[in-house]
Structures are given as structure tokens and as C-alpha cells.
Amino acid sequence: MVVRVLAQRGHEVIKTGMGLDPAGRIKRWGKGSYRRWQSLDYDGDRWHRVRVLNRVRQALERNAIVHVGIRGFPRGDADLEIDFCYKKFFLDPQILRLIEILRAPVLPCFAVCDYKGRVVIKIYPALAASTKEIMSTFGPLYARYLREFPEYANIWARVIRQAEF
């Protein structure tokens, strides 16, 4: 949702993840927004992943927006814990390292529902590329999002499926 809205507003947006389905997305959203909406799929060997990360770097150098979904783990560094009522949940340290290495400012974005029932994309001010700042600002925002808008947070779907986060 966030990627589609930012692409429609004219930003070049790169969606990253595993097992992405660009063909299905074109079918759902149309080719128009897809022109500014590309995918980088990590799925592959380590060499492929390094090439993908290099493309992420190149995209940031072009001032594109790189969308990174939140991945969490049931175990991790205490500094990376998200306040989550269901069970222990820690952010992926790899993503935070990548953000720091690429010195990429982070825009926390959430899909939420307004009082009329419309979906609204809420974009918060940019955070510096520092794990400390991300955890002190994004961490509480994300915890609140999980509590107040569970219907939009993918993590709950995984909880229901009893899958690893």
C-alpha cells in the first residue's frame, strides 16, 4: 500500500523483499503506477543478494525511495526489541546495519484507517541512519501501530498462522 501511494505521487520507489510477484502486482494495480514502482527480490544465493544490495545502494544514490518491510525475530539483541503484547519480538539487525552502512535516512510509513474508514498512509519525519535513533523513534511508533491498527500489520497474519515472524 505504501509503495503504491508513493509511486502514484511520482516518487521512484523500489520494493525489496523475498518472493515478490511483480506480474501479479501489475495485474492488481495496473501498469501505470508500476513504471515508477520496481522490485528487488532477495531470493537467490549470496552473490545475488550482494548484487541486490548494490542496486539498493544505486537507487538511493538516485534519490529513489527504497521500501523495506519490517522483519522480526523471536530472539535478538535487547536494544532491538519492539514492545509487542503477544510475545518477544526483535527487529532484524541486518536491515539496521544496511541502513547505517548506506547512510540512508529512514521515513517511517504506516497504512492506517481514518475515522471515516479510509486508508491513509501516514509518513513521519525522516530519521537519521542510526540504529539508536531508529529504535528510540520508530520502535515506539511501530509498537503503537501494532496495537492500534492490527488489521494492517502483516505480523498478525503470521501470528494467526503460527508462523515465525
Partner: peptide
């Protein structure tokens, strides 16, 4: 680098 490498993919990018 690579599957048996000392560096994971993020560290590999850092090396590059």
C-alpha cells in the same frame, strides 16, 4: 564472499 565466505551479504556490500 559466497556461501562459505567470512562475510554475510551486508558485510560484503560494506567491503565493496
Amino acid at each position: 564472499l559466497g556461501e562459505d565466505g567470512s562475510f554475510d551479504s551486508v558485510a560484503a556490500l560494506q567491503l565493496l
